[in-house]
Amino acid sequence: MIRLENVTKQYGTETVAVRDVSFDVTKGDFVFLVGPSGSGKSTILRLINRQERPERGEVWVAGRNINELADSRVPHLRRTMGNVFQDYKLLLNKTVFENVAFALEVIGKPRHVISRQVPLVLELVGLAGKEDRFPNQLSGGEQQRVSIARAFVNRPLILLADEPTGNLDPATGEGIMALLDEINRTGTTVVMATHDHRVVNAMRRRVIQLDRGVVVRDQERGVYE
C-alpha cells in the first residue's frame, strides 16, 4: 500500500529531515512512527500525502510512484487518504456536521450522499446527537473525534495521523486509539506518528523508530522503548 525506497528529504542545504529511509506498509497494517521531536516522523507523513517531495528516492502509494504524479492528479491521490492532526484543524465557524460534510462537499459529492454518509460516520466515532455543536463547545477528545470522522467519511484506503493524542489526557487518548483501531479493522491502513509511550506499548503494533531522520528500528508488535 505504501512503500518508501531510499527516501531523503532535506530543507535548505543544511537540515536533513529524512535520510535514506525505506519501508513497506501492506494493506490493512497499523504502523507507529516513533521518535523524539525533529526525528522526521511528520516529514514522512507529509511525503506520503505529497505535501513534500523527496530530493532522492521514491514514494509509492497504492501502486503508483507519487513523485511522478502530475500536480493536477494530487487531489485524487489525497482523496484516497485521510489526515488527522494533533491540533485537529477543525473549522471553528462550522458545526460538527458541517465540518465533516465539508470534506465531501469540496470533492463534489452530491447532497444526498453527504446527508447519508455524515450521520453514519458521526455515529461510528460516537458523536451522534452532537451534530449541531461548534468545535469550541466540545472537549479535546470530541474535537479529535470530529477530525477523525472528517478523515474517514470518504472511506479512504489510508489514514495518516500526526500525534493525534498529543493534546489529550491519557484516558481520552485511549478512547481515540480504540477508535483508530476500529477504523483499522475495517481494512484501512493506518500510519500514526507519535511520541506517546503509553499508546504504543498498549497497542503492540508495528513500530518504526526514527532518530535524526534515520530508521533505527522496524519491529512487528513492538513497544516504544
Binding site: N49, P75, R78, K89, L91, F102, G108, R150
Partner: peptide
C-alpha cells in the same frame, strides 16, 4: 485554514 483542509481532503485547485 479552510483552504488547507480543502487541499488535504483532495479538493482541486480550480475548485
Amino acid at each position: 485554514r479552510e483552504i488547507e483542509v480543502m487541499k488535504l481532503v483532495g479538493a482541486t485547485n480550480w475548485f
